[in-house]
Write a protein that binds this DNA or RNA. Structure first.
Length: 459
RNA sequence: GUGGGUGUAGCUCAGUUGGUUAGAGCGCCGGUUUGUGGUACCGGAGGUCGCGGGUUCAAGACCCGUCAUCCACCCCA
């Protein structure tokens, strides 16, 4: 019986070609985050189960990969009458990067700066069923600012995000914006019971997918009365005008909303926050991308203030999401600390870049291949390789005395632009043969010239 | 968790209403006189048709089960 060599379902292997492309994209993201003053953090892939549970709603708890107890403790748990997940498992794989951040902050608060601006690019795990752009292990690229309630944080985070999107050729993407308290106000104004809040939000969030009739139907199915629906839906029906320069008039849309729910206390805070955010946002990279979207709701239960989601016309789901979560850090037992952040759905962005074939132009992995023409030339080849490497070049050395055909073909396969030839003639003259595989040009030159040729091509 | 599609060579797939030794393209390996690759020509290797059972004189084709995979829903990045 042979063992399957495929990775486990929903998991992927990244071969060097793919790694090059992924690293290229990660690099762009890192540079933008760093430019905004964020520093990198890493946390363990395992967290204690009680750190994770209860932060993402019931669905989240279901989709969490849990780690089985080991040894005695496992035996003991198995002997229980009806062992539960929490008896059998004591740890879980992290489900996102925000909860670990909250834990870190609660733990190290006194050692961290007054405002903790961190980014993290790491895998997370969800026991979901795989689909297009959905995996069980996937990378998230998070930026968060902990320690301030100012809407400047929202403005900074969305600015960083907008800059990444532009650099990755997603200029057409939008950052949809809503506010948790605004949603709460809608629910109140429509006389919907608070217990049905989540059901209501899940239904209205689907507007762009199933349309107004679909939403109505789903709201009814979820137990919302027709009377409430008739109050609710007209309130949400707000469009954001965009001018010739692509600048959206979010403030006008916000004012229109204010007329409808401005009298409610819950709505007032939301209106104030969003008013500030949209005003500040006009001066950042996100100016053209921000869009007020009263229908936007986000599943993760820890959000308390503004919420965001990236939409792009060529993908039906979201390319990332975030928001303010002022209550999460307080859940770790100490004082409550305001925070806001964003998670970029890098896997989906990569899927789209791949579809658009925008991932081809990544630089070759190696600058030059030194071919091997005779056993006697080997010491000279090794010496040359060493020298070139010290001069900052990426150099590969062909290890076997194969036919030239094979050696050239190998260079071709790896997209190596130059090969060096050290045959009898070259060694006798103390010169180096260098061939450009794209143009077919070949020269026999001195060492310095070789470096010059390769570095020149590099540009 | 729910529903649907697909499993034939390394990859993408063809394979007529069941009927002899299962095909193509690409890729791979070798060769076209041993100091030159990506083009061309010639040759070659490679498949218990996902797995198990059933129907039949006969199954890659039909039926049942199972596994894998993809897509959609749920939910989400």
């Amino acid at each position: 019986m042979s063992i399957s060599t495929k990775p486990a379902s929903g998991f992927r292997d990244f071969l060097p070609n793919e790694m090059r492309q992924r690293q290229h994209v990660f690099h762009i993201i890192r540079e933008v985050y760093k430019a905004h003053g964020f520093e990198e953090l890493d946390t363990p892939c395992f967290e204690r189960l009680d750190t994770l549970l209860g932060k993402y709603g019931d669905e989240g708890d279901q989709l969490m990969f849990k780690v089985l107890q080991r040894g005695r403790k496992l035996e003991k748990a198995l002997n229980l009458d009806e062992p539960k997940d929490t008896d059998l498992a004591d740890m879980g794989l992290r489900y996102d990067l925000t909860v670990p951040l909250a834990r870190i902050y609660a733990q190290y608060k006194n050692e961290l700066p007054r405002y903790f601006k961190r980014y993290q690019i790491s895998p997370v795990w969800r026991a979901d069923r795989p689909q297009k752009g959905r995996y069980r292990e996937f990378y998230q690229c998070d930026v968060d600012i902990v320690g301030s309630s100012s809407m400047t944080c929202e403005a900074e985070v969305t600015s960083a995000l907008a800059m990444v999107l532009k650099k990755l050729d997603f200029s057409g993407a939008t950052i949809q914006v809503n506010h948790r308290m605004l949603l709460r106000a809608f629910i109140e104004a429509a006389d919907i019971d608070v217990s049905l809040e989540t059901d209501t939000l899940v239904a209205i969030d689907k507007l762009d997918k199933i349309g107004i009739d679909g939403v109505t139907k789903e709201l009814l199915e979820r137990g919302i009365t027709q009377e409430s629906i008739d109050k609710l839906l007209p309130m949400l029906d707000i469009t954001v005008d965009v001018d010739d320069q692509g600048m959206p008039d979010n403030l006008a849309a916000l004012n229109a909303l204010g007329e409808k729910i401005g009298h409610l206390e819950s709505g007032q805070q939301a209106l104030k926050d969003l008013g500030e955010l949209f005003t500040l946002g006009q001066h950042t990279a996100a100016a053209t991308m921000l869009r007020l979207d009263p229908y936007l709701a986000r599943g993760l239960s820890y959000y308390t203030g503004p919420i965001f989601e990236i939409r792009s016309s060529d993908f039906s789901g979201s390319l990332g999401g975030g928001g303010r979560y002022d209550g999460l850090i307080g859940m770790f037992g100490k004082e409550s600390v305001p925070a806001c952040g964003f998670s970029l759905g890098i896997e989906r962005i990569l899927v789209l870049l791949e579809e658009r074939q925008q991932l081809q132009q990544v630089k070759p992995p190696v600058d030059v291949l030194i071919t091997l023409w005779s056993q006697e030339a080997l010491p000279t080849c090794l010496k040359l390789a060493q020298k070139l490497r010290e001069d900052g070049l990426k150099v590969d050395l062909y290890p076997d005395l194969d036919k030239y055909k094979k050696q050239f073909k190998y260079a071709d396969e790896r997209d190596i632009p130059f090969v060096i030839l050290l045959g009898k003639d070259e060694i006798a003259q103390d010169l180096i043969g260098i061939k450009n595989l794209k143009t077919g040009e070949q020269e026999t030159v001195a060492y310095d010239k070789v470096v010059e040729i390769i570095k020149c091509k590099d540009k």
